[in-house]
Design a protein around this nucleic acid. Structure first.
Lengths: 205, 205
DNA sequence: CTTATAAGTCACCGATCGGTGACAAGTCAA
DNA sequence: TTGACTTGTCACCGATCGGTGACTTATAAG
């Protein structure tokens, strides 16, 4: 006979358990596995409490979006040392790539933005976009002017997009275009290539 | 009074209707909307026939994977004119980008690879990967040697990844990193940036 | 103590999912 | 015409989904 465990009555702790369960589910299994039943089971809580405390799953995600520490951002104000445009942007891209690879939540959000733009995913994606915009703006102040005749915004977008996609492929497939993304050496090559490209299109002279 | 539609008895046509319905569903609504019920409804067919003719949805996807015309590939054998490494690779990347943007099926497959690597998506993704490998191999023959001291495979992977991601963002969000991907002018800028990057890292000397 | 309320439990609803068995009806060879 | 086979139709199953009403029980104010 199974003894029923007496549930500690604590609304605050329960709400946190729900939010943490949703967070863990997204990070580990993605949005496809996200649901009221799954979150409630993971949190060890009845699902009706999700509606009472958060008015549904969207409310849980809104609460998660408000946790600033979850989203990308430099740990220190001056994250990249000042310098000419090419090296500063290359350094930023390298740090951004590392931050992405270390943040499964952000990776899931980025991936999900590509296949569904529901209100639910927008709640989180906008928090992510805001964080990265702030970071980028800070880094931009550290850089000089880009080389004349080159379309810096387009080039940056192209390389940021590449960084996004490679980081996504690491967790999903582990390879891309012949590169073995499970090896640390491969990522060194990618970072060096970012540097090479940036230095080539933004010559210092 | 509703007249009952005369049931045209044609197994071959029915099978084709099922495969076409699955194809249209993926291209229009993505893999999330893919299911036996949805495919059967779209094809105007009872779902039991999906199991009879294809042994389930996976069989339908296998049949789709076998349709070579669905996947990317050059319309002509010599798709890119011979030349030095930089311009040839830039030309390839530009054509690849245009081909991607015009092929919603491939875009859906690429996006889905990022969030789920089930057997079902593998059936299609491998067909896609094979087609692009062949295309790339042909183009590679037209190019000379890359510049010494640069990691051509890593750079190619980074730019192909960027092309993938930008193409995916066009249909999902319509923008990326401040670029308005709904404007044709923006894509011109992207193509020119690809050229600028390739020419910069692979100087002709 | 009594009692109001918050916190947690439980059972249930309708809808949808993938999948299957049973059966009607068209097709064609003997 | 008879009979075997194919094609298509229909009803149903168990599981799971999001969501809700009704209940019990712990906690704390009076």
């Amino acid at each position: 006979m199974v003894t029923k465990p007496p549930k500690t009555r604590d609304a605050e702790a329960t709400a946190k358990a729900i939010a943490d369960a949703a967070l863990a589910l997204i990070a580990e299994k993605g949005f496809a596995a996200l649901g009221v039943n799954a979150v409630a089971a993971r949190a060890g809580v009845d699902k009706v409490l999700i509606y009472r405390y958060f008015d549904g799953l969207d409310g849980v995600l809104s609460a998660l979006a408000g946790r600033r520490e979850l989203w990308l951002g430099p740990t220190e104000p001056t994250d990249v040392a000042p310098g000419p445009y090419g090296p500063v942007m290359a350094a930023f891209l390298q740090r951004y790539l590392r931050a992405l690879r270390a943040n499964p939540l952000v990776l899931r959000v980025i991936a999900w933005e590509l296949i569904e733009n529901s209100e639910r995913v927008k709640l989180l994606s906008e928090a992510r976009a805001k964080a990265i915009r702030q970071w980028f703006a800070e880094v931009r102040k550290q850089a000089g002017q880009p080389a004349t005749g080159v379309d810096a915004p387009a080039i940056n977008a192209l390389l940021i997009a590449g960084v996004h996609h490679l980081a996504l492929r690491e967790v999903s497939a582990g390879d891309f275009s012949g590169l073995d993304l499970t090896r640390a050496e491969t990522w060194q090559r990618v970072e060096q290539s970012i540097e090479a490209l940036m230095n080539a299109v933004h010559p210092e002279t």
